[in-house]
Every structure is written in C-alpha cells, then in structure tokens.
Amino acid sequence: MILSIEQLNVSTKEKQLVHNVSLSVRKGEWFALVGQSGSGKSVLSQAIGQMLPANLKANGTIQFMDQNMLTLDRKQMKDIRGKRISYIFQNYHGSFTPFRTIAQHFQEYQKAHGISSKEKRKENAIEALESVGLDASFYKRYAFQLSGGQLQRVSIALALMLSPELVIADEITTALDSVSSHKILQLLAQKQKDTGCAILFITHDWRHVRRYADRLAVMKDGQIIETGGKHRILDHPRHEYTRQLIKAAPILSSGLRSGLEEEKKHEPTFS
C-alpha cells in the first residue's frame, strides 16, 4: 500500500466538497479515479499534496508510505512533492512559465531537489526528454513553441525524472485530441513499466480507464460510490450511476461493452 486515504473530508466554510472518502493505491498500480466535473476528484487529488487553495480545509488521514501527509509541515511537504509524489495537470499551458525555456524548467526543478551540478542537471534533462520521444533540440525552446502533446510529454518527463513512487495525473488528456491522448497515455504506461511508480489517474473518460487502469473508484458529488478491480466494475457495475457512465462512453463496434472482451481485443497494443 503506497497511498491510503481514510475518512477524508474537504470543505469550505459553507460547503463540503469531499465526503468521508477512503481509498488506497497499491505499489506500482494504475488506479483510476473516475467522475464528472464537479464530482470533487480534483479537490481530492490536490489534498494529497497539500495543494488545496487556502479556503479549503481537509481532515482525515492521507497516509503516504509511513507518513500522514496532513500533519507534515511546509518543509517536509516540499521534500515529498515533486520528488516522491509528482503531479501532471490538464492545463499544459499553465504548467509552464511562458517566458522561460524548457531548459530553465528542468534546471530549476532539479536544483530545488538538491542536484547541484549544472552539467549533471542538463544531462539528466536531455536524457529525460529523449525518454519521452523528444530530441535534445527541445531543451532550448519555449513552451509556446511546442504543441499540446509535446508539452504533455515534457510534463511527463519532468514528473518522472526523480523516480517518484506516486504520480498523480489530473485529467492530463482532456485538452488533447484522441490521437495525442492515446500516444501520451501509452507513453505514461511505458514509463510506469520502466519505473514501477504507482499512478493515480484522474479522468472522466471511460475509454482510458478501460484500457489502462488496474483498479478504479467512481466518484460522484464528493463521495466514492463504487470501487474495485476494473473488470469487476466494467462487467458488473453495482451502482446505477456507474452503469450510466459506462453506457455513455461510446466505443467502436457493437457488442463489445464488456471490459474483458475489450481487453482481449486490445491485447496487442499493450505489449
């Protein structure tokens, strides 16, 4: 168990956004948190890294390895964030400072986590870029010179650079078209295989869940309404809302609604 959340509540003064949520992510697995916008899934993911806006308060326990995240101070948090837990966001433009080069982002990131040699940092960065299929020429560019898919690749390179145990991917393909989404997720899956990190994958898109997740939780109105292995949920959804979600996600060709068959059909692309 790498991350285990128990009885987590997140609320503003007026409104509770996350109700009594418990879930656990195992080492090296792809855990999907599925829900529509406004279901509280992003709030939940931000609570993990103590990245909530000031007007939101979280209570409960968020156990990461052997530490309760909610009790850590700023300094301890800073050491964990980026190094052991890293985030990838939906809004790839917002994730990069427009007037700084990709190089500067890599440099700064590594410097913050104690890699002192400038040459070493550059070496690492270029290696990381190459590992996500971008050649060294991207190192000197600015974010706006890259396409959405390329930026999201850079995000992945940055996020996985220090081999974190947990990667939180918050709707990372929502702003991309389906072809780039597919490529990005395949890349992420490959990286997961290489590094063995766990992924908390926040999405509203069942297609991605179907293909990549090991286990999943369905979230609605701040509560988790169903959780379990992917095949169990896709084949035998217990909750009406889950059924609705599965039905609403269009898939190609008729008669392949079941997750098991879907898995077989797509087997080749996995390897």
Binding site: Q36, H204, D205, W206, Q244, L245, K247, A248, A249, P250
Partner: peptide, 10 residues
C-alpha cells in the same frame, strides 16, 4: 462536454 452530457447531446 463530460461523458454523460456528450452522449445526450449526440
């Protein structure tokens, strides 16, 4: 749009 709404609009 989100998934359920997508299906409805389609």
């Amino acid at each position: 749009l989100d998934v359920i709404t997508q299906a409805e609009v389609l």
